[in-house]
Amino acid sequence: MAIQKHIALLLQFLLVALVFDVANGYPLKLGFYQKTCPRAEAIVKRTTANYIYRAPSLAAALLRMQFHDCFVRGCDGSVLINSTRKNQAEKDGIPNLSLRGFQVIDAAKTAVEAACPGVVSCADILSLVARDAIHQIKGPYWPVPLGRRDGRVSIASESFTLPAPFANITQLKAQFVSKGLSVKDLAVLSGGHTVGISHCSTIATRLYNFTGKGDTDPSLDPRYVPQLKRICFPTDKTTLLAMDPGSSKSFDEDYYSVVLKRRGLFQSDAALLNDKTTSAYVKLQAKSHGYTFFKDFQASMVKMGQIGVLTGKVGEIRKHCALIN
């Protein structure tokens, strides 16, 4: 039965990939490096596992890094590029200043380069690392079609196009649809907040000055507000908060129960209750104990991983992920 489910899931992903193939002309495909660098995926998996074993919290950070990469210029590894004297790159844009885990990507790239110089892109490595890191903490595992090439442009100001933690449902839906993702994908991928942490500064306005009158966001459970205020003071910029309290180290459906209780950390979490489709998905996962969450997350990650990819002869294969060739 397990084998049959795996085959069915694989066929589903292949169908999704086929749709993108027609659009791109140069398809991403499973096993892309089978002949040119057959050990690539195993090397990335081993390198990722070594880091996640020592620091499991990096899994959430690496998943977030892929999301931030794909939503700006597509999944082209542009978030990995360092700034120069002439250009401030994405990673130095304000929404990306809290990104971490770049050392994992660099280590994987170094290991792959030692085996197959100039073959495997940083964009592909980032996609593999994010998947392998989440699976390492017992989260879902999804097929990653490969063949992405690396972008040569990275602009800090473009990071402001990322979905913001204070975004409302109308803004979130528009941003996801603009990337070829559905409203259901919005609800599913928001579930990535089941792992990870944020800073008190991210919710300070929501707690202390929501409309500029010293008030609190009314969409937040009033019984939960005193707990948050005991942890976070108005000017606190260092204290960390779990995005899924009590379950922030486990990749599970508990996030949806938190949102349904109006205890989602961000306004963008609370916003999921303001749309018929996303609200229905939140209630489904919360009440069914995540019956379809892993399967849905797998499918949405495959879709997200194909946003705006560079293939064929477009872009380059970077020698170092932080530096344009």
Rank of each mutant, 00 (worst) to 15 (best):
F71T: 03
R73K: 12
R85C: 08
I52T: 00
L80Y: 05
A55Q: 15
D124C: 07
R64A: 13
R100N: 12
S121E: 09
N96W: 10
P56S: 04
Q66H: 14
L97I: 14
S78K: 01
S121T: 06
F71N: 06
R85G: 15
G101I: 10
A130N: 04
R73D: 15
H68G: 02
L99G: 01
I81V: 14
I81E: 02
I81D: 03
F71K: 09
A89P: 01
F102V: 02
N82D: 15
Q88S: 13
G93K: 00
Q66K: 14
L128T: 04
Y51G: 05
C75D: 10
I81S: 02
G101W: 11
L97K: 14
F102P: 05
A115M: 10
L62K: 09
N82R: 13
D76E: 11
G118V: 10
F71S: 06
F67R: 13
A89G: 03
V119A: 13
L126P: 00
P95G: 03
R131G: 02
P117A: 14
R73W: 10
F67W: 14
A114S: 15
L128C: 06
E90R: 14
R54N: 12
G93M: 08
V79S: 08
S78M: 01
L62A: 09
A59P: 01
F102Q: 07
L99E: 09
L63I: 12
E113D: 13
V120L: 09
V104Q: 11
A108L: 05
H68W: 12
L128M: 14
V129T: 08
I105R: 05
I105D: 06
I52Q: 00
D92G: 02
A108H: 07
V104T: 10
D69V: 03
T84V: 07
P56C: 04
C70D: 13
V120Q: 07
A59D: 01
R54I: 11
A60F: 08
C70N: 08
L128W: 15
S127Y: 05
Q66Y: 07
V72A: 04
S57K: 11
F102W: 10
L126K: 01
R64N: 14
E113W: 02
L63H: 12
S78E: 08
E113R: 09
Y51P: 02
C75Q: 04
V120Y: 10
R85N: 14
R73Y: 14
A55Y: 13
